[in-house]
Every structure is written in C-alpha cells, then in structure tokens.
C-alpha cells in the first residue's frame, strides 16, 4: 500500500473558524483521517510529523515579523500550499489596521503598548510566498474545503465556481432582496460559496466571501445610492472582512477616506 499523503494545517492571525470547519466535518472527519496522514494540525492533535507535507492548508494573515519568517518555512516544507479563508486570502478583518495608524490601535487596546510587537499591515499569504490555490470565505464553506482537499489529493483542479452570490440565490429560488424589496445587497459583486445564506434570511449579502471574479463595484454602488445609501455606508460596507481585497479596497476608498 502506498504511503498516505501527509496533510498539515497552519494557523496565523485568525479566529480559528476556518480550521474549525474541518473539525465540523463530523461525518467525514474520520474518513478524512483514514485517507490522509495528519502531519501537523495543532488544533486537533499534539502528534506532529516532520515535513515535507504533501498538502498544507494555511489559515490566518501575516501580522508579525516572526510570522513573515514562519510562512517561508511552511512554504519550503509544503508540496502544495492552499490558503483558506478571508484572513489568509485578503488579510481578513485585521487588515483594517492597514488604513489606520497602528500606534493608535495598539494604545486603544493595550495599557502598555511597548509590550506589543506587530507589523503595521495585515497581509494575505500570497503577498509573502507563492500559493497554489486560494479558498475564499469568512468562514470557508466546509464542503468546498473538502472538495479542495480531495482535488489536490487526486491531482486535479478544485471545482470552485468564481461567479457571484446571485447565481446561488437563483439556484435556491430565493427572490432577489435588492430588486423585490429594495434591500441593499453585495451579492452581485461577492464570490459564491456560502450558499446565499443572507438573502435566504431576508437580509442583504455583506460580502464575507470577498470579491467575485469580475466584480462591477461602481455600478452596484450607484444602485445602493439610489436606494438611499450614504457615502459613509458604502465606505464601510466594502471595508469589513475582505477590506484588503483589491476591488473592495478601491470601492471603499472611492467613498471617503
């Protein structure tokens, strides 16, 4: 029997939610553990095996000088490296610091700022090392994560569509909240994958899966304005969990600093 592929899961600045998606695979988890050899996954196991690893999943963004070094070591040890979640693919909510003076943030939170060492910016993994695939979402979709792992183990391209949340709404038969109810929605510019949950619950999409392949954000912004959104609303809505993703960053800046 050939050796099982060795899997590693790494954490940088993050909330642990994307790794938890893996532990949330209640039924599939034991089968996954049989299909791969878990080499490094500290949230799940204290047993660690040395690299190289066939597949590394990376959660979180780079925010400290030590982490900027550590990600190079992870890349060196990994055959394939896949980033999972908004922190790893776009810098995450931590990237809000990129738009502020970091000293003010540190002193707002910590009584003794001199104890804190941190980079001024929160950056995605791809800004530091080559990445083989990026899986967007805050948090990632558990089934998409299993698809990405299966695809890499089989040596094929993951079947992750790059279209917008709108397509998922149409498939689910959810009436368009923007057209039918005038609820501002980021669905037309947001990457599919969540299953269009928010419109299904009667609220507009807030963009937690980040930009779709070809987002027309200026056009959607005009539609929001027609519905009464202020410049400030637009500035904020593009500046959340994927604030560092280029199309969202640009659109946010177009509506105030």
């Amino acid at each position: 029997m050939p050796a099982r592929p060795r899997l590693a899961v790494w954490k940088f600045a993050s909330c642990d939610g994307c790794q938890l998606s893996l532990l949330d695979c209640e039924e599939e988890l034991l089968s996954l553990a049989e299909a791969v050899e878990i080499g490094y996954f500290l949230e799940a196991s204290r047993k660690t095996l040395p690299g190289p690893y066939d597949l590394s999943l990376v959660e979180g963004s780079i925010t400290t000088p030590e982490d900027a070094e550590r990600i190079r070591e992870v890349r060196r040890l990994s055959q394939k490296l896949v980033t999972i979640g908004a922190c790893a693919t776009a810098g995450g909510i931590q990237a809000l610091r990129n738009f502020a003076r970091i000293e003010e943030f540190v002193s707002a939170v910590y009584a003794s700022p001199e104890y804190i060492r941190t980079l001024e910016r929160s950056t995605p993994i791809a800004a530091h090392v080559p990445v083989d695939f990026e899986l967007q979402g805050c948090p990632v979709n558990r089934l998409q994560l299993l698809e990405v792992i299966s695809a890499f183990l089989a040596g094929r391209t993951p079947a992750i569509p790059r279209y917008s949340v709108c397509v998922e709404c149409k498939r689910a038969g959810t009436p368009c909240v923007l057209v039918a109810r005038g609820t501002p929605c980021l669905g037309p510019v947001t990457h599919a994958g969540c299953g269009a949950i928010c419109p299904g619950y009667g609220r507009g999409c807030y963009g937690c899966y980040g930009p779709m392949e070809t987002p027309n954000t200026p056009s959607l912004a005009r539609r929001w304005q027609a519905l009464g959104a202020s410049e400030r609303d637009l500035h904020r809505v593009f500046r959340t969990f994927n604030a560092g993703a280029e199309p969202f960053r640009r659109e946010s800046e177009a509506h105030g600093g």
Binding site: I93, V109, D233, R236, T240
Partner: peptide
Amino acid sequence: EPPRFFEAFLRGRSLSEVPDI
C-alpha cells in the same frame, strides 16, 4: 497569538455592524 485590535476596529462603525464584526 498576534494582537488583533477589535476594540479599535469597532470605533466609527455602525452599531448594526457590531454583531457581524
């Protein structure tokens, strides 16, 4: 764990955004 500054991010946001953040 790297510092993440949530209390600072929340300043200037709308209270309706707080549960998501």
